[in-house]
């Protein structure tokens, strides 16, 4: 998994990080079209990305700049749910197809509520 910057996503961030377009791009995971079959995935599927007890659901999309045999996500609070300080930009994670939709932003932010 690689975490990258994307100008179109950053452009949406200027509308606020609750902007629908920003959230849609931030909650997407990109594969090369030719890799989808190997992962047994189709465009539009929802997948759970997990590692070390942390998980996030994202929508599958295709992009020819995704790494071969891997996946690409954009820098955002979604990526931050599964990255760590040591491997901020590149890490291994488990990906499995799940039912439902990508994780909602409020679902993530609820974890930050003060107890």
């Amino acid at each position: 998994m690689v975490v990258v910057r994307n100008a179109f996503q950053m452009e949406r961030a200027d509308h606020g990080k609750r902007d629908e377009g920003y959230i849609e791009l931030s909650s997407s995971i990109f594969f090369r079209k030719e890799d989808l079959k190997d992962f047994d995935l189709s465009e539009g599927d929802t997948v759970e990305i997990s590692r070390d007890g942390k998980a996030i659901r994202m929508k599958v999309k295709t992009d020819d700049t995704a790494p071969e045999g891997g996946a690409m996500i954009f820098n955002s609070i979604y990526a931050s749910q599964v990255s760590t300080m040591d491997d901020f930009k590149r890490f291994n994670a488990k990906i499995k197809k799940v039912e439902g939709n990508p994780t909602k932003l409020d679902e993530i932010l609820r974890k930050f509520e003060k107890k």
């Binding site: 990080k17 942390k54 820098n75 955002s76 609070i77 931050s80 749910q81 599964v82 990255s83 760590t84 300080m85 901020f88 932010l109 974890k111 930050f112 509520e113 003060k114």
Partner: peptide
């Protein structure tokens, strides 16, 4: 800065 967005949850979750 927006560390809740940009830093890993392991870190940002401690901000509260």
């Amino acid at each position: 800065s927006d560390p809740v967005s940009s830093l890993p949850y392991d870190i940002s979750s401690s901000l509260g």
